[in-house]
Amino acid sequence: MIVALISGFLFALIAQYVRLNTYDKIIATALLRSHEVIQILLFAIGVSSLAFFIEYLCGGTHIDVKPFYVVGVSVGGILFGSGIAILGHCPGTMTMALAEGSLDALFGYVGGILAGLLFTIIYPSILPLLGPNLGAINLYPQSNVAAGILVVAYAALLIFLGFKLSSPKNKQSI
């Protein structure tokens, strides 16, 4: 938990320093005009994956994979993406915007909390509409050695892609 907390603070500092939470950067990423946000997220996910695995090995956390419902995940993804497009913030950048006093972020948070509460209340009645339950899909092997190899390879790939991803804004002309 401590490693995750420290990683989260470091990510937030970097994100705040490069102004990752601005509407312009989020929309430029959505329109594929800039890859800065994607680069930072790839790096953050790579580092976080390693930190989480270390914490898992030390017994500080556990893995609980939820069932995969095709329709539910598809509709949820569309709603989540629509919220990002409307607000111009993902949940992480919305937190930074809220800390800076942004009212749209406040409305986004209130809307997200109310939507989550509504989903929790109606979940039992909409369960049949979520599509087939494909079970807990998990690529995580049971062996810690195999899992370690998988996590390190995954993290290295994400960090590599984060450094190599080119962006029209990131290219220097000579």
Rank of each mutant, 00 (worst) to 15 (best):
D64W: 03
F80M: 10
I54Q: 04
H62P: 01
E100I: 00
G111V: 11
V37D: 03
L87Y: 08
G111A: 14
Y69E: 01
G46P: 01
S82Q: 00
S74H: 01
L79S: 07
G72L: 01
H35G: 15
S49N: 09
I40L: 11
V47T: 03
H89S: 09
A85N: 02
L87T: 13
I38T: 14
A85V: 14
V37W: 12
A30L: 12
V47C: 02
T93S: 15
I78L: 15
A44L: 02
G76T: 09
V110C: 09
S49W: 08
A51D: 05
C58Y: 08
L41I: 13
F53A: 07
G77V: 00
A30Y: 02
I86F: 13
Y109S: 07
G112D: 06
F68A: 02
E55F: 00
R33H: 12
F68N: 10
A30P: 00
G92L: 11
K66T: 14
A44Q: 03
D64V: 14
V71M: 10
F80W: 09
G77F: 07
I54H: 04
S82F: 13
G77T: 04
A105M: 07
H62W: 04
S48D: 08
F43H: 08
E100Y: 08
C90S: 14
I78Y: 04
G46F: 03
E55W: 04
F107C: 04
I40C: 05
V65M: 11
S102P: 10
A30H: 07
I54C: 05
E36F: 02
S102D: 15
S49Y: 04
D104M: 08
I78K: 08
I40F: 08
I78H: 04
R33A: 07
C90D: 14
V65F: 10
T61F: 09
A97Y: 05
S34A: 11
T93W: 00
F53C: 03
G108Y: 10
L42Y: 13
F107I: 15
V37G: 00
A44H: 05
V71K: 08
L42S: 11
L98F: 15
H89Q: 14
I63M: 06
Q39P: 06
G72P: 00
M94G: 13
V65H: 04
G112F: 05
E36N: 10
T95H: 05
I45E: 03
S48I: 11
E36Q: 13
I78F: 10
S34F: 01
G77N: 09
D104H: 10
Y69G: 06
H89V: 02
A51H: 02
V110L: 15
G59N: 10
A44K: 00
S48T: 15
G83L: 06
L57R: 13
